[in-house]
Amino acid sequence: MANSPQALKRARQNERRFAVNKARRSRIRTYLRKVEEAIASGDREQATEALRAAQPELMRGVTKGVFHKNTAARKMSRLSARVKALETA
């Protein structure tokens, strides 16, 4: 348990940041899930729209420190490739 005033304050800050980051991560995952569901249904238009909506959310997560830049880039790349595969099929 934290004993010094600084450690107590850091513990409070960590709890607050954890809650904010958890909400942010959950929101991003929801957007990604919508893209996945659209791809699974085979609806090209809906998948493209969902991907367009998910990209800024994912990049916002990067700027806020929730995801690493390369992780977000990898996710976007793989989702884009899958949506593009829908278009050609």
Rank of each mutant, 00 (worst) to 15 (best):
M1D: 13
A2H: 08
A2E: 10
A2M: 07
A2R: 11
S4C: 07
S4W: 01
Q6F: 07
A7C: 05
L8C: 07
R10M: 09
R12K: 14
E15H: 08
E15N: 08
E15M: 08
E15K: 10
E15I: 06
R16D: 10
R17W: 06
F18R: 13
F18A: 13
A19L: 15
A19E: 15
V20I: 15
K22N: 14
A23M: 13
A23H: 13
R24N: 11
R24H: 12
R25T: 07
S26L: 15
S26P: 01
S26F: 14
I28G: 04
R29T: 09
T30D: 11
Y31L: 14
Y31E: 09
R33G: 00
R33Y: 04
R33F: 06
K34P: 00
V35M: 02
V35G: 04
E36G: 02
E36T: 08
E36N: 10
E36L: 05
E37W: 06
E37S: 11
E37K: 11
E37G: 04
A38M: 00
I39M: 06
G42V: 02
G42Q: 08
D43A: 10
D43M: 04
R44K: 14
R44L: 15
Q46H: 08
Q46I: 05
T48C: 04
T48D: 09
E49T: 10
A50S: 09
L51N: 02
Q55V: 13
Q55W: 09
Q55R: 13
Q55M: 15
P56W: 00
E57I: 02
M59W: 12
G61L: 00
G61H: 04
G61R: 05
V62H: 03
V62N: 04
T63W: 06
K64T: 05
K64H: 13
G65D: 04
F67C: 02
T71H: 11
A73T: 07
R74F: 03
K75H: 09
S77P: 03
L79Q: 00
L79Y: 08
A81R: 15
V83E: 03
V83M: 05
K84M: 07
L86M: 08
